[in-house]
Design a protein around this nucleic acid. Structure first.
Lengths: 161, 161
DNA sequence: CGATTGCGTTAGTCCGACTAACGATGTACG
DNA sequence: CGTACATCGTTAGTCGGACTAACGCAATCG
């Protein structure tokens, strides 16, 4: 059945990926994400940052101070992991953690001036990295990709979360 | 700058995700992939399979028998992890592992008739799962998505691998 | 008041990608 | 020929991300 196709790859040839796999959207997603994550993580590491840092700073900048739980909701970072992220941000003076006077169970997290500067810096770092990530696509195609991904993600978050 | 936007969410409102994050292609990819992986893994688990099984079976079907190293190359599974996958497949009688007479360092892996049946079954399982995954998109959009992802993946595999 | 709920935190699980090292074999070359 | 080097299968283990369990403590509800 597929015996004929085998002729395309005489004996040992380049180890090509089966067609069935290459067409699989789920596989394309995870393979690409692996590469994308590596690219982004390495890029951010070079700037002494991690993507969680960016997520938290952006969230604080756009929606103002909030409790750790609130940040968790906005960023998608699990509250269990939030502790560590905030520790890292606080160490670097990008964020301030103060007890909330209204509800002493929670901390109020505030972005510092240095945090704002940091955020701006990370914005450009991420821009460059995404330029690399999306290099083969035209601006229109990049938009289209983002549009499609957004629709899928929205669907799967509303439908099961 | 983003001070104005804060007005959209008065005091505590629904924990909405910052714009900066929602537009980030890398973030869309990893979030979506998390969901996609979960969907696929659970679906395959219900059929007593894992995606690696499918990858190996498909590779054997399309390119014929091969050494573990060859399968590693075709499927993208690390050779370290290959052992376990092949054990699982062999346990289920989907695959046969025989020493290669020409080179006694390697095993030749062959798909069994049962493996072929299995592959056909998994084909339809995956079809259904992808229908769920891509539900919000029209057929044309699904194609477009696959096209875009493929181009990106190809670019990043040729360019750094 | 007591029961329940929400918050921050610690610890730890699970899974996928990936590295290191090893024994057994095969290949190249002085 | 022999020795150095490469390859294959395998084991063990690292690392990062997503996620669960449980706890103490403060607030809130009935």
């Amino acid at each position: 059945m597929t015996r004929a196709e085998a002729m395309d790859v005489p004996h040992d040839g380049p180890p090509r990926t089966p067609d069935r796999l290459r067409r699989l959207a789920s596989r394309l997603l995870s393979q690409l994400t692996t590469r994308s994550d590596r690219l982004i993580n390495e890029g951010l590491a070079r700037a002494d940052a991690r993507k969680w840092h960016y997520a938290v700073l952006a969230s604080l900048q756009e929606y103002g101070p909030g409790s750790q739980a609130a940040l968790s909701g906005r960023t998608g970072i699990y509250r269990s992991d939030m502790v560590g992220v905030l520790n890292e941000l606080a160490e670097r003076g990008l964020v301030e953690r103060a007890p909330d006077p209204d509800d002493r169970r929670r901390n109020t997290i505030t972005i510092s001036p240095r945090g704002r500067r940091r955020l701006r810096r990370l914005d450009t770092v991420l821009d460059e990295l995404h330029d690399e990530l999306l290099a083969p696509l035209s601006p229109a195609e990049r938009d289209e990709l983002v549009r499609l991904l957004t629709r899928l993600l929205d669907h799967h978050t509303r439908t099961s979360s």
